[in-house]
Write a protein that binds this DNA or RNA. Structure first.
Lengths: 412, 412
DNA sequence: CTCACTTTGTGCCAAGTCGAAACAAAATAG
DNA sequence: CTATTTTGTTTCGACTTGGCACAAAGTGAG
């Protein structure tokens, strides 16, 4: 099969192999719009950059927009835009939480192609839950007819590496140590989510807040940060995550930045962990609603109610006082983390994001005041900017092998 | 000069260029004793590994021990040992603290070739202090006649990257923001510490505890750890450091893990930072001596007195009670860090190391008890094992460019 | 001691990859 | 329309590496 090719039959496709992954990563993160930018960012010659772009196009991952670009004020031959192929392959991303699940097909660049949500009111067996989730994903794949390159799942629990077991899936009422990764892979096998050769796609599982952080770092409010701290309240208490030089720091056993039990109020309410005044119970939608004197209604989630209250009734002194108390406690927790980690940006999600919107100056002031070094205290604090960031983060997990080595990942 | 060589004149030296750095790093950390190991560790062919070894030998960095090795029980042709050349180039390493300084010449593998210490009783101008330090280093270089490839300096202060300014050199009574890196480079220029072409060697400055951590990670008690937390009391309060995947995490402005002001005793003594019960004042040689009812003598350092007391009089109930109080507070601080960072090993230095020696079980138990997740609480805690680890760490800084690219670093 | 076997080290060749340079293309500036 | 700037492509040569054959240096069985 491998015919001996003579020298003159070589094509430009035979260069740029080692730069393929970095180049795709640049396109994926939206920071490589043209071949010229590829040349400078990768530090290669124009010839190599051109070959890389051609190869990525042949692989069906990107398109080259040959239309004349209307860029004013620039001399020289205009560069063609490198766009993500909107009809290219996707990965399956999924998220499970206490109330239900969501599945999506996500393309390069974190673009959500199709999504479907579902409810699960009662805690069920992990295999059943993930079976429903993967079935929804399989349905999406069937409907859209997309090629699937991998699958990623976000769970509200620390996930041990590399075993892929959920260490504390309290909010799903699953037993600690459930082999989520294995169960997920089995459901994918069972639903026949495979590459064209019939091999089941690679699957990955991660903690939801970690994946949120990954998504915000690559496509959202965390872009460009070298040391990014993310703290979010979601459906499952307070979680933290740290992205260092573009890579998630999950700790040696996946338990890094489980920040829900930082003490932020020594006279606070008792927490199930045995201490008092943990971030988890002090900065909480339910606690906020009660402190603001509102009765939590059953119709929508507590998070939505809290957000609405912050947005619409911040002028109310009771609401404002309750919010400020939360901001002060959140700020203390963030300051503690800043003292240890010295991040260059903080991204907040969930309730924290709405607290930030309500009074951005106060939160920054508290963090600066309670952190030791003025310089590390002046950390920019911003809110999430990405829709479905946890899903996008789960997709990042599945895209990673493709970004690392597009040729191998697509050959399979 | 660059004569056009024909194909048949190529020698084996023209391969293995890209693997040169990784190979030298393996030899440096002591984990590549033979060419055969190089082959497997680097994932290259034997031909390439052989060429790499030959190149490193030509560069004068390693020696190949051709004596027959007496290894019992192994079949096949014995592999020759790759040893660090004991007469090879060195780097200049230096450390300054409140009481004085130490300068050393350090070879590959963290081997101290020569060392000299000095005292400085009064706080002096940074340029004067570093002038004395560099003069001592220049003297060592002159005496030994070694080639110097770089210089590293450890200071008891956070160091901002990449400016190289000391952010909080309180223990040296220097003003905050001193451009230590620049002053150090100027002294090196002034003393004519250059490569053979007369160019001053590259110089680097780092925080002392960070450098201790780097040294212990590469050559001491931290070898093999993926997420290493180091906490040490030195001449300058409590400091922490984190090595992640072999790389130091200093934070975005060099202030990460400045852990001296973690609160570990809410009713503790006041600290100059304005809070009470900081690790810095609670786990302190002076505090320990006073709690043990001893009068600190002026003759030796408080650290030595404390160590002697722990070693020799631990049976004394007063000493023991004081030590246990310190262990409990140190354990609480470590547990807080474990909850956030989830390291897979903790290395302790200075007084902490002696506390660990005095009662290892108690410290581990406290950390496990006060950390949230049993699994992340069972972190192995060990003491430092390296002599002059801070100096060795400063040398690591200077060796790094050579390890990254031996050809470029030695060509200059 | 000899022979088979195992493992290590080296020389040679083919293949792959990349940079340099020349050339072509597509815009703007004058 | 022409000069200039910038981008994209082709060709060539240089460098690096893996594969393979062969040599070298030991162990172990008989």
């Amino acid at each position: 099969m491998t015919q001996t090719r003579t020298t003159q039959t070589r094509t430009k496709l035979e260069r740029g192999r080692s730069a393929l992954g970095p180049a795709l990563t640049l396109v994926h993160t939206g920071s490589a719009p043209t071949r010229a930018v590829l040349t400078t960012e990768l530090g290669v010659t124009r010839a190599t950059a051109g070959a890389v772009a051609a190869e990525l196009q042949v692989l069906g991952l990107i398109r080259v927009d040959t239309r004349p670009t209307v860029v004013a004020g620039s001399q020289g031959r205009p560069s063609h835009r490198l766009d993500i192929n909107p009809d290219g392959p996707v990965v399956l991303a999924a998220q499970v939480h206490a109330d239900g699940f969501r599945a999506a097909l996500v393309g390069l660049g974190g673009r959500i192609v199709a999504t479907r949500a579902g409810c699960m009111t009662v805690a069920a067996d992990p295999a059943d839950v993930l079976g429903v989730v993967v079935a929804a994903g399989a349905e999406l794949l069937k409907t859209t007819g997309r090629r699937c390159l991998g699958a990623g799942l976000a769970v509200p629990s620390a996930v041990a590496e590399p075993e892929g077991t959920a260490l504390n899936p309290l909010h799903l009422a699953w037993p600690a140590g459930v082999p989520v990764s294995q169960v997920f892979a089995e459901r994918i096998l069972a639903h026949g989510i495979t590459n064209p050769d019939g091999v089941p796609v690679a699957s990955f599982v991660g903690n939801d807040v970690n994946l949120t952080a990954l998504a915000e770092h690559r496509h959202g409010a965390g872009r460009g940060a070298r040391h990014l701290l993310v703290v979010a309240t979601g459906h499952s208490g307070v979680g933290g995550a740290l992205v260092l030089d573009g890579r998630l720091h999950t700790g040696s056993s996946g338990l890094a930045l489980e920040v829900g039990h930082l003490t932020v109020n020594s006279e606070g309410r008792p927490c199930h962990c045995g201490e008092r005044g943990c971030l988890d119970v002090e900065v909480d939608p339910l606690a906020f609603l009660q402190a603001a004197g509102r009765e939590p209604g059953p119709e929508v989630s507590l998070l939505h109610q809290s957000a609405a209250l912050l947005r619409e009734e911040y002028a109310d002194p009771t609401v404002r006082a309750a919010a400020e108390a939360l901001i002060d406690r959140l700020g203390l927790g963030l300051a503690r983390l800043v003292n240890v980690l010295n991040p260059d940006r903080i991204v907040l999600g969930g309730l924290h994001c709405h607290l930030l919107d309500a009074d951005p100056e106060r939160l920054s002031a508290v963090v600066a005041d309670r952190s030791l070094w003025g310089r590390s205290g002046s950390v920019p604090i911003v809110g999430c900017t990405l829709d479905h960031n946890t899903l996008v983060g789960a997709a990042e997990l599945a895209w990673q092998p493709v970004l690392d080595d597009p040729l191998s990942a697509l050959a399979a």
